[in-house]
Every structure is written in structure tokens, then in C-alpha cells.
Design a protein around this nucleic acid. Sequence first.
DNA 1: GAGAATAATGATCTTTGGATCATAAATTGA
DNA 2: TCAATTTATGATCCAAAGATCATTATTCTC
Lengths: 83, 83
Amino acid sequence: MDQIARSSKDMGQALRNARKAQQMTQADLATRSGIWQRTISTIETNAGGAKLDTIFDLLAALDMEIVVVPRSKSAPEDLQDIF
Amino acid sequence: MDQIARSSKDMGQALRNARKAQQMTQADLATRSGIWQRTISTIETNAGGAKLDTIFDLLAALDMEIVVVPRSKSAPEDLQDIF
DNA sequence: GAGAATAATGATCTTTGGATCATAAATTGA
DNA sequence: TCAATTTATGATCCAAAGATCATTATTCTC
């Protein structure tokens, strides 16, 4: 199940999914990434913006990376929001 | 050739590649995205950071999206930098 | 090589994200 | 249900990104 993202909201959701998949708490991720737990919460819940560098710090701690691709026909994973 | 990104630098390169593949100038992209040409230049050349929202504005204008995936074994496209 | 198109950059101001202190709220599990 | 864990959030300060004016430098193209 790939995590497609077209917005900061999608990205926050993808990060949360990845973190939970690895059974990490926000505090765990904070320790690993050097990013504050508060900031992680803000990003995951889309309660404010984020810097690109911060996102990459989190992705590195989660051992993830990003692929930039042409938009697929269907919407991101939260397509259900439309209905 | 997928554009893998593990850093802001990678992302800037990916954006530039996507823009050029669509034969757009920075000014064109600025008009389409609502982001200043100066900011686009800064991001593409990695001369300073970027906001996540700005990146998504640019991706939207380029009709691209992001996929968040586990890290592949080999490094991003600028692996040559290691040698 | 000249001229046009494109990209890079100087300076200032405003806005916002992250750091930092903390605690309150919500969720989970026994 | 109660305790423990986990997540969300209030307030302040600082650093940095984007907006905005622009001009200069670079890179194509003829």
C-alpha cells in the first residue's frame, strides 16, 4: 500500500502511517530524528505547516524516502474523503 | 527514470528535472503555481530551505505527486556524489 | 559574437515553523 | 475502570522562508 501524497495533509498522514507501522511512538521518533514530539504531532495532524528539511529528517528516521512521479489517475489514499 | 529524493537537495533536482521535461521556464512555473520565480530558483539550487506547502504547490503545477516508500538499497540519483 | 531568453541574487519586511518550557487531553491495556 | 502511556496544545522567542522591489549574470539561439 503505497502512500501517495499531494498535500501536506497527505504527507502528515503518510508519516503517521509509517511510524505506526514500525510501532514507534511520537516520542520514539522524536528521539531518533531529533525533531520535537510537539512538531511531529503538529505535522501528523496538519495543525500548521512544516519545513521540507524537517520532513526529510523524519523520513530518514523512519528509513523511508520519496519518489516524485506524474500524478496517477485516481486520487491519494484518502480518496474516501470525496464520498 | 523515477526521481528518488532523500533530501531537500534531491527534491530541488527532481523539481527542476520535471519542469524541464515539460519545457517550462521558472517564470512559466511561477505563473502556474503562484510561487515567485525567485523562490523556485532558490529551491531548485538548494540555496536555502523550503516549506512543504510550497513544494506541493509546485508539484501540483507540474502535475506530479509524491509516493512515500521504504528506502531502496541503492542511493538516490545523485549517488555519483559519493565517488 | 550579439541579442534575447532564462536563471540567479541583493536587500528588506512579514509571516510562520521549530525550539523550548510545560500541562492537559485522549487513548490503550491490564 | 483506573493507571499508564501516548498525543495534543498554550505561550514565547528566534531563525528562516516567502513576498516584494529590483538588477545582474548566465545560457541559449541566430
